[in-house]
Write a protein that binds this DNA or RNA. Structure first.
Lengths: 213, 213
DNA sequence: TGGCATAAGTTAACATCGATAACATTGTTG
DNA sequence: CAACAATGTTATCGATGTTAACTTATGCCA
């Protein structure tokens, strides 16, 4: 019965369902969190039946994993754009970019690190994307250390500390766990400075140096 | 038909459904994560019909919130047990206890901080429990600062840094995000030392002190 | 060009879940 | 002892993930 309008594609073979599904799912995630992502609802909004999505995503978890992968890639891109000339400035800037990303995309960030998606070990692409972001941070630390800006502690240790700090700060601020609100723009920079310069009093630093003169 | 066996309670009025529900839900959370908690499944295991649970928990989210509250209280208890005599030792120990808790109860920890339950602002008891744990950490920092062990930076700033560090370290280790595995027992202590003593090289520390002699 | 394999949709159906309404039973208490 | 509140029950609704079986469009190859 409805077989005319030849120039207009009207039904079957939607075009690029995968891309549009990904896009709409990402938007839903951004605005309402991952719990609000329903394959049926997505399908309805895309004007398609629910099982159609299973042609392109074997699983709901797989779709979420792809969103997380995109998140890691976006984060990696932003981190890579940081200027690496001056060690201290680079380290601070990396941290700022990281926390900014989490605050701009809280729901995406939670999906990336919430431990909700399939364990990393079983999803190679997701694991690779995560490692890519980590590498940028690690390279920044390694570079700063080679330039003599950092102590000769193992790079892995300093990197773990730096990542823990920015990740913890991100999580706590986007969930409102820090008192005084997360409105303080200088908080991130101040916290990072503490990791660089230490939080001990000068007297303590002094007496500690005296041990190995 | 079945109206005998008077000494044995057999049906209606289960006894203490709330407590047993809480207990079973906690066990399920521990072993399989919060996503595995289903009110219907809990009811079946408790030998009771599903709507019965709604007499005691207005909502699934409410049950999860109670589990999170219990988690914060348990964490607070552990943190309070830390000896506060020597500032440095206390700070390190607080961090170790914190990370240990997260590693022992990863699923509970994720529920507490995953941003999955109702926003803190709308659940007063949950918010209070969280603040209780935070207070212990803050007091430890304040005490160490008053004893002259820490720099005169604002207590809120140092506390935010310390909490971010241990929280980030917890999250990253329980999700396996740190390379080399989370098997290193000294990692937490080393990372905390970095925050206390700084990660800058001695030369940098020196030149920075020279600015304000 | 005709035919056919395959990719990409469809409807139908199943199991599970959270949640509510209406009803039944128990225990307590004035 | 009778009324009432507390605490269960069954029946039911709407939504979800997922699979099975079927249908249609697309593209490739003899």
């Amino acid at each position: 019965m409805p077989s005319n309008t030849p120039s207009l594609k009207f039904a079957y073979h939607h075009g690029d369902l995968p891309k549009q599904t990904h896009h709409l799912a990402l938007e839903t995630l951004r605005e309402h969190g991952d719990a609000a992502i329903s394959l049926r609802a997505l399908a309805k909004q895309l004007g398609v039946s629910a099982p159609a999505l299973y042609r392109h995503f074997s699983d709901r978890d797989t779709l979420l994993a792809e969103l997380a992968i995109g998140g890691f890639e976006a984060l990696t891109d932003r981190l890579r754009a940081v200027d690496q000339q001056m060690p201290r400035k680079a380290l601070i800037e990396i941290g700022l970019v990281y926390v900014d990303f989490a605050q701009e995309e809280p729901n995406l960030y939670r999906l990336m690190f919430g431990g909700r998606v399939l364990p990393m070990s079983v999803h190679p692409r997701l694991d690779a994307a995560r490692k890519g972001a980590f590498k940028v941070l690690e390279n920044t630390v390694a570079n700063a250390r080679e330039l003599g800006y950092l102590k000769p502690s193992p790079v892995s240790l300093i990197t773990a500390a730096a990542w823990s700090l920015v990740h913890g700060l991100s999580q706590l601020t986007i969930d409102g766990h820090l008192p005084g609100g997360n409105a303080e723009p200088m908080l991130t920079e101040s916290v990072l400075s503490l990791l660089l310069e230490g939080s001990q009093s000068d007297a303590q630093q002094q007496s500690q140096q005296d041990l190995t003169p």
